[in-house]
């Protein structure tokens, strides 16, 4: 059952990745990548790692893709390819249908779908411990990196007249 569910999520991800490659509009590419990232979060869940699936949705789909879409919208007036914020209706329906099917699968099996490999509690505990013992320095460095990255988008000070 898990392989079949992963096949559905993988097929949707590969299809929308193809749309991202072939479609001219940057907006459609960005939204297609959003669908792909949500499908990879489903694959994390199916592989028995719900925490990383949640992180994937929060950080990638929630933060990064919102930044990308805002960047596209902010640059909308400069150039035809950026100004096109329309999204092909069939693709939208396909994405929504995929989300509905997967949500129904999850809800019909209670909190965790039967298709998902049950997360090994001991592995998840060792994973959390690994982040703050052998990888403590890397975790702190990444936290600092994200803070410095946030400073990168601070606007330049206006030159004094």
């Amino acid at each position: 059952m898990t392989a079949e569910a992963a096949l559905v999520a993988g097929a949707i991800a590969v299809f929308f990745a193809g749309v991202m490659l072939l479609h001219r509009s940057l907006y459609v590419s960005a939204v297609s990548l959003l669908v792909v990232l949500l499908q990879t979060a489903v694959l994390f869940l199916l592989c028995g790692s719900p925490l990383l699936g949640l992180l994937q949705v929060m950080i990638y789909a929630g933060a990064v893709m919102v930044l990308v879409v805002v960047t596209i919208m902010a640059a909308g007036h400069e150039g035809e390819r950026f100004a096109d914020l329309s999204f092909p209706r069939p693709l939208a329906w396909l994405g929504l249908a995929a989300a509905a099917v997967e949500t129904a699968l999850i809800l019909s099996h209670g909190a965790l779908p039967a298709a998902a490999a049950p997360p090994d509690p001991e592995l998840q505990a060792r994973f959390a411990a690994a982040l703050f013992q052998p990888y403590a320095l890397a975790t702190e460095a990444v936290t600092l990196l994200m803070f410095l990255a946030a400073l990168a988008i601070a606007p330049e000070p206006e030159p004094k007249a």
Binding site: S49, L52, L55, Q56, I59, Y60, A63, V64, L67, V68, L123, Q124, R126, F127, A129, A130, L131, P134, Y135, A138, T139, V142, T143, L145, M146, L148, A149, A150, A152, I153
Partner: peptide
């Protein structure tokens, strides 16, 4: 478990890379 830790770090570094 360390591979999972690496994935968590990759997700965070990728977010920082996207912002920069």
């Amino acid at each position: 478990a360390e591979a999972l830790a690496v994935v968590a770090l990759v997700i965070a570094v990728a977010a920082a890379e996207a912002v920069v």
